[in-house]
Design a protein around this nucleic acid. Structure first.
Lengths: 333, 333
DNA sequence: TTGAAAGCGCTAACAT
DNA sequence: ATGTTAGCGCTTTCAA
């Protein structure tokens, strides 16, 4: 059976295509009687108007491009995966599609679909290069950044409050009697590094402790390098009593290392992370960490990008994180 | 600056729109000289043709709809999440977009985008109801099912060989000296239940063992119910020496239960799963399981749906699974 | 309230 | 090889 068009419906109903269009889009300009009659035909024939043509004439795609960083896509990274779930769930409610893409040519170029007018808005995930921001701005397509770790005045962003999270994690450790605390931070994104660093030193200072740089000048990029750093840190007599990881995946590396060194967690070392990825509650012992509602972040991102598309001004937002107490930190006397 | 169109390019280059269209689509019909000249203008102006209009005239959307059953269970998601990664990666290479959606109104209705001609093909993930299959067939949009757990003649599907997987898991246990083996199976999908059941009993029979129905008439639906079943199973003197779970997430529930009962794994109970989800290699002890290349499954799904879209006939495929030996099974004398 | 008709920006059949 | 032109299926202006 041939696919029906507005023309067909108009013919069947004995009205003009204009009337059909008005009925389809709930617009005034048709009498109640006509509207009912047309609606009946639409229902009976189960007619769904073609989206392609609507998009063409409206110059809207009803697509949101979700741009992931080349290295950690939502489907490689459990943290972003949960945010993505929120984005997609919300997109369905808003009648938008989300198209997952990534920058081409080493992150400095937007994909064609942006230039082809096939996206009404862009959600960037994770840190974004200044070059990419510039390109995005040049297109005029509304965009925002989720978890950029940075605070750029010119860019609408949704960020967890990592500084406070680190402050809280450190305070938690201090409250449990730890003073020999090491921090393994991620230094891939400078802003993130700065935020976590000051969160850490501030909390230590609040307890009158000025940590030795060797205790916090420790950077990792992933689980493996966190393992390597932990090795240097833990494999000696005067090891710290606690290690704070600014990313849960690092904490998982540190835990693996501790086990390999036959150190018991938390009896021999306490470990705390930040992020609360899915794994954290399943590893042994369950990881104490600072978490955030990631699905909610995604929902928020979708709502905000739609606001921007509608031309409203949208403010950047800093989201609070919360301590999730599990089994990887012990109190020391 | 106004968005350029083929007309503009044609005017600038002093040729017809046909020439521009041919150049854009690498089609014959223009002289080399013209092609070069037009291409130069295209490059200089950084012109990208509108996709909406192309889609309208070609009656193609270049979208693949990925239909997921549930966004609920994080465990199930972990399995499909890796398949999705394969699908999306491959879609980018093929210049298709994947739009993630789910059936509306309690799984019996396809989303509007299918009826609006906004998807060239559908990939269903997980089991699919006969009603939904019928609806999909009625639309005429090519589709296939990934991990349907079933073998429907009329539906192109990609399935892991769960029967053989269960057979292998059981054999592995038997080879390690276990005879008192319990199986916790998933009974939400009848076909899956049947396959795993026969895999189990066949392997037992091959070793001359006819297991008591109480040892395999055990069904669960998720981690929590697997925990509950394990409780009944393990909390008694004559408990089995090994339990086989037809889904890794069940195994995780069983492990949690064993720990709560102060049973050591694998010293007191051996546990084996099927699926090899991301968690399985991180829990303690690392779960021995039967795995499959899930990203590869996704890649394959994308390739197959494109074949179908191109009108080629595509055969259903049964994929082999492989034993992944880790730490949750011990040898008994 | 209604309908005719002009596009939206492409592709491709057809004429030159 | 090149240009003219008729759609694709909608929305919306304008006239009736």
């Amino acid at each position: 059976m041939k696919k029906l068009t507005v023309k067909d419906i108009a013919k069947i109903a004995g009205v003009s295509v204009t009337a059909v269009s008005f009925v389809l889009n709930n617009k005034p300009g048709v009498s109640d009687a006509t509207r009912k009659r047309v609606q009946k035909i639409i229902d009976e024939t189960d007619f769904k108007p073609s989206l392609s043509s609507k998009k063409l004439v409206l110059k809207q795609s009803f697509n949101i491009c979700l741009m992931m960083n080349a290295f950690s896509s939502p489907f490689e990274d459990l943290f972003y995966f949960e945010i993505t779930r929120g984005i997609i769930n919300q997109s369905m409610k808003c009648n938008y599609n989300v198209i997952i893409s990534k920058p081409i040519m080493s992150q400095s170029e937007l994909p064609d679909l942006i230039y082809s007018g096939d996206a009404d808005g862009i959600i960037f995930m994770q840190d974004i290069s200044p070059a990419l921001i510039e390109k995005a701005q040049a297109t005029g397509v509304p965009f925002l950044v989720v978890d950029s770790h940075a605070n750029n005045e010119n860019v609408t962003s949704i960020n967890p409050d990592y500084k406070k999270a680190t402050y809280d994690a450190t305070s938690y450790l201090l409250q449990h009697g730890h003073t020999e605390i090491c921090m393994i931070a991620s230094n891939v994104v400078p802003d993130f590094y700065t935020q976590t660093l000051s969160g850490f030193t501030d909390a230590m200072a609040a307890h009158g402790i000025c940590p030795h740089p060797a205790f916090y000048n420790i950077a990792a990029t992933n689980e493996a390098s966190a393992y390597a750093e932990a090795r240097k840190l833990l494999d000696r007599p005067n090891r710290p009593s606690a290690v704070l990881c600014t990313v849960d995946s690092f904490a998982i590396g540190v835990m693996r290392c501790a086990k390999d060194l036959h150190l018991k967690i938390p009896q021999d070392v306490s470990i705390i992370g930040i992020d609360d990825i899915l794994l954290s509650r399943y590893i042994e012992p369950k990881l104490t960490t600072i978490g955030i509602d990631k699905v909610g972040m995604g929902t928020l991102a979708m709502d905000m990008i739609i606001q921007k598309i509608q031309g409203k001004t949208v403010e950047s937002i800093l989201l609070p994180m919360e301590l999730i107490e599990r089994d990887s930190v012990k109190t020391i006397q």
